[in-house]
């Protein structure tokens, strides 16, 4: 199986690659279109700012490639910022729109006085979807590692596969057909995170 991790200069590639590797597949880290086109599965990681990320994807001319591959029903996993880019827009971005695969926008945790932002540390991942293969075997008690200031607010609530709670509920896993997105870092979430990665690797 060929799993491609898109390398667009937005960090965190190494840990993601290693987590795939321990699940038995040697991933390919690349920004080349032909590699992405010939992949069986695609992962878009990323930490940093929404605008910068879209600028990098544009520079590498990868936007239409990613959109085509997703529309072609290839399994796709966005992690953290890589997930946020799947939406239409973000409150963080001044200039750029997102990839628009999922309807909705990315919003900032409200800066109410008692809510510290970034949301940083281990918090619940409460599975709400019945049939999300990515989350199979994840129990109600699961805690995963978060490190972010923005979160997705999909227009269609049926794509929400799991939620967490920080100054109110927010979606932390999205699933629409072949597209998956996680707001937390599975590659940093120890055994539970590796289970999620493994599920993606085993996904048919």
């Amino acid at each position: 199986m060929k799993i491609v991790i898109i390398d667009y200069g937005m960090g965190n590639i190494h840990s993601v690659a290693k987590s795939i590797q321990v699940c038995g597949v040697q991933p390919i880290i690349t920004n080349k279109k032909n590699e992405i086109n010939s992949a069986d599965k695609i992962i878009l990681p990323g930490v940093g700012a929404f605008d910068d990320a879209m600028v990098e994807l544009k520079k590498l001319d990868l936007i239409s490639v990613i959109q085509q591959q997703i529309n072609g029903k290839k399994p796709f996993l966005g992690i953290c910022l890589g997930m946020q880019l799947l939406l239409e827009s973000s409150q963080e971005a001044k200039i750029n729109q997102g990839l628009g695969i999922l309807k909705g926008q990315v919003v900032k945790f409200s800066s109410r006085q008692d809510l510290k932002v970034p949301h940083m540390g281990w918090n619940d991942c409460k599975v709400v979807a019945k049939d999300c293969f990515l989350l199979s075997g994840i129990s109600g008690q699961a805690q995963v590692y978060f490190c972010h200031s923005y979160y997705p607010e999909p227009a269609d609530k049926s794509v929400i596969a799991a939620t967490s709670s920080y100054g109110g509920e927010f979606s932390c896993v999205l699933h629409q057909d072949n597209v998956y997105g996680v707001q937390f870092h599975p590659e940093k979430s120890q055994a539970i995170g590796l289970k999620i990665i493994k599920n993606f690797v085993q996904l048919c």
Binding site: G11, V47, G48, A49, D52, L81, P118, M120, C147, H148, S149
Partner: peptide, 8 residues
């Protein structure tokens, strides 16, 4: 913070 995000 601008380049890599505040969270890191």
């Amino acid at each position: 913070a601008k380049r890599f995000g505040s969270q890191c």
